[in-house]
Amino acid sequence: MALLDVIDLVVEFPTRRGTLRALDGISFSIEPGEILGVVGESGAGKSLTGSAIIGLLEPPGRVASGQIQFEGSRIDRLSPAQMRPIRGRQIGAIFQDPLTTLDPLMSVGRQLVETMQTHLKLSDRDARARAVQWLEEVGIPAAAERVEAYPHQFSGGMRQRVVIALALCAEPKLVIADEPTTALDVSIQSQIISLLKRLTESHGTSVMLVTHDMGVIAETCDRVAVMYAGRIAEIGPVADVVRTPSHPYTEGLMGSIPSLEARVERLRQIDGAMPRLGAIPQGCAFNPRCGRTIARCFTHRPDLMPAGATQAACWLVGGGAA
C-alpha cells in the first residue's frame, strides 16, 4: 500500500469573477521511503499540492473534489483538531525561506522541544537531550551550546538545517519539502539537499520534494512529477523522465538545462508563458506553446496515459495521432 495517495484532487479558489481551478485532477502516490520530485513553472500548482496534503490551504482555497489518503485513510476532510496530530507527527513540512519560518523570539532548542513534546511523550530532560541530538544530526556545530541560541544567531543555511530538524523531530513518515533550497546561496543548496536525502533515508521517511531545479531532481529523487497549469503533465521514474521525456513540455524543460559536456551556443527555451488560471485554453493546456500539436490537442484534454516507463498527458503518446 502506498503511504500517500492523491486521487483526482481538485483545488479551487472562489473569486468575485468566478471560481478558479488551481489544481485540476491531480493523481499520484508516494511509496514508503520514496522521494518524489515535483517540478514545474511558478504557478503550476506544486506548492499548492503540498499545502493541500498538509491541510494548510490558504482560504478561500479549498479541496473541491478528489481524495487525499494517508496510509489508506482519507485526510482531506478532517477537522483542524483531527488534522493537528497528523501534522508534524505523520507529515512534516519544510518551507522555502528559513529566514522567516522560525519564530524569531524563541530559542531553537525550545522550538524543537515544543514540537517534540506536542507529539511524543517526552520529559523535559529527554526532549532537551533529543533537541541537542537533532541539532547535531543536521550538522549544527557545537549543538549543545547553540541549543539556546535564537534563529537570528544562525546563518541562512544553518537556519534551514534547524528547519529540517524541526520538520523531522517528531519522526513523520512523509516530509513535504517546498523548495527547501530556493532561498539559499547556491554553494549551500547541495549541502542542504544531501542532508535532507541522508536524513530521510536513515529514518525511512518519504519525501515530496517541490523544486524548480531539475538538477536536484535528477540527483535526489526516485520518481518525478512534472506539473503544468494545475495538472500533471508527466510522471515516472527520474531516469526515464530525464533521458526519454514523453511530453513535449518535459522535453522543453530538459532542453533548458545547461550541460557541462555538450557545448551549445544558446539554451533552448519554451516559447510563451504558462496560461493564467482563468484563461486555460480548450484541449491541452500546453497547446499554445507546443510545437507538435495535432487537431485533437485543441479539442480534447489528454489524461495521463502510459508512455513507455512513464505516464504522460499527451495525445502523441496515447495513440491520439491515430
Binding site: P80, G88, R89, G92, A93, L102, M106, E114, T118, L166
Partner: peptide
C-alpha cells in the same frame, strides 16, 4: 507570517500558536 504557518505545519496546538508564537 511564515513562522506561524510552519508552527501549524508542525501540528502545534492552537493555544501554543496563538499565545507562544
Amino acid at each position: 507570517s511564515d513562522h506561524i504557518k510552519f508552527a501549524r505545519a508542525r501540528g502545534l496546538s492552537e493555544h501554543a500558536i496563538h499565545f507562544h508564537h
